[in-house]
Amino acid sequence: MDQPVRELSYAEAIREAMAIALERDERVVVMGEDIGVYGGAFQVTGDLIERFGPDRIIDTPISELGGAGIAVGAAVTGLRPIFEFQFSDFATLAMEQIVNQAAKMRFMLGGSVSVPVVMRFPAGSGTGAAAQHSQSLEAWFGHVPGLKVVQPTTPEDAKGLLLAALEDPDPVMIFEHKLLYKTRGPVPEGAYTTPIGKAEIRRKGRDVTVVATGVMVSRALEAANELAAEGIEVEVIDLRTVRPIDTPAIVESVIRTHRLCIVHEAVKTLGIGAEISARIAESEAFDYLDAPIVRLGGAETPIPYNPDLEKAAVPQVPGIVAALRDLATGRR
């Protein structure tokens, strides 16, 4: 990339992407609860209201179903709405419009419309917000043909994937982990896109492949650094897109490392890890496996309030280190 690069937080990078889109395309509007003068529950929209005014930075009432549906209707008729859910958990109130309408409209209407709506979902645990404000529901959306689902993990990708989502004619759901909002990283200035549907190798390694999503990417990288000291070289793949999954990238890596671990925060059962495991089992990489595939995921429980329990409910670095060590050294 040619643009100058500076350091921004993940939240600032998303805001910058929205500002670029609002600046260059009159059709773009941002809608959501308390995204105006309040700046959004996580201060992602921030000062956009001052720069673009209330006609384009639209505070909605607390009406997730209606608000999401209005965004869908506006997308079908010529706008490019970005709809922010205050917490991804509140998408449960709007599933009708997302799953029955946005995802299916193009198909049901035989291709006569597109639904270029972008929805943003602050997701995940670790903030002490308990069971109804901490879920990781991205796999639900990944199960619906018609939707695209991304999970950026760096400020650079948060900006690039949002701009890619806005250029995409189909509905794109962006899951943003709340613990990432304040993390900082290099972000190119100006407009650029990060491709939807492409995983990214964050660390090369010969001994074991870890596919991680969301905040688990940084935990997997931390684990990889610890294991490097023991002579175990871990390859870390940031999945980035949940639907469509970049199967070739994972297959290629597993063929080199012969070992696969998947780490995500969402509940393990029927999760993204299960899907990736199955894809590897069905692929040419299966013959290269030297050990059973390992899945690390959220516990079979709602997210608890107590901080120790909350930590115990989702994978943490020591658990990832132990699982990878066992996997790489043939102890499982």
Binding site: A68, A74, T77, G78
Partner: peptide, 24 residues
């Protein structure tokens, strides 16, 4: 913009279309 198999499903969509009409 279409019939709808979900009772009430078209109501927010209509309002979204009206938002487009105003904005455009």
């Amino acid at each position: 913009l279409g019939a709808n198999g979900i009772v009430g499903g078209g109501i927010p969509i209509a309002v979204g279309a009206a938002l487009s009409a105003r904005r455009l």
